[in-house]
Amino acid sequence: MIELNVAWMYPDILCLHGDRGNLLALKIIGEKLDVNVVIHRINSYGEDIDFSKIDLVLFPSGEIKVISKITEDLLRYKEVLKDKSILAIGTAGSIIANKTTRKNGEEIKGLGIIDIECIEREKFCGDDIYFEVDDFEMIGVQIPTMDIKLNEVKPLGKIKYGYGNDGKEFEGAQDKNIIFTNCLGPVLVKNPWFTEQIIKKAMKNKGVEIEKNINKEEYDYEINSLEYIKKFIAEKESK
């Protein structure tokens, strides 16, 4: 079976929002696509990481206070990371961004491998997020602790409900194989069609085309979840 090697970045440090579910989703959906997803835990700072063996790098969300240390640790791999398939979720956007401005004005430097900036917000409240990506819809929740400013990159999706990058039109960012999303859920659990796309793109970046498509019936829980939450959102908007 063909392999997809995933680097699970600092799981004990970036541990905020149930992101271990995302790894389980990659494993389960990989199996359905006949791809053996092999997960490599990158546990501590200073660890030697052989990125030549990694096909997808996953940064889960974490407390903002840990970001600068992570960025510092990964600067040595900045060039190699630029060409990798990467998914950064929630506050992990700060790791791959150019910089993050904190509420007190302090600036945290990111790796600068995607042209976005993060600005910490004074006040926030978590809410649902519902948006369109290419030919599918995505659902999840967002804790909008930061505004995300996109420079020379495209958004990931168009907001249908929720805050997204800055309370306006768009959600997330993408540049070549690097993707950032605010969507929690865990995002890959709640949106298996997105997970399928992530796996296929990472495999393509590795030079392997996956032609198999998963029968949508296998996603009945997720499709129903999407529909019921859309209904819930519609009721919320009508009030």
Binding site: G18, R20, C125, P186, F232, K236
Partner: peptide
């Protein structure tokens, strides 16, 4: 159920994956 302790109510369940 949805979480309605604060406004707006929302449908978070991600904590279960911890």
């Amino acid at each position: 159920e949805e979480l309605a302790e604060f406004f707006p109510p929302f449908t978070n369940t991600f904590y279960a994956y911890d």
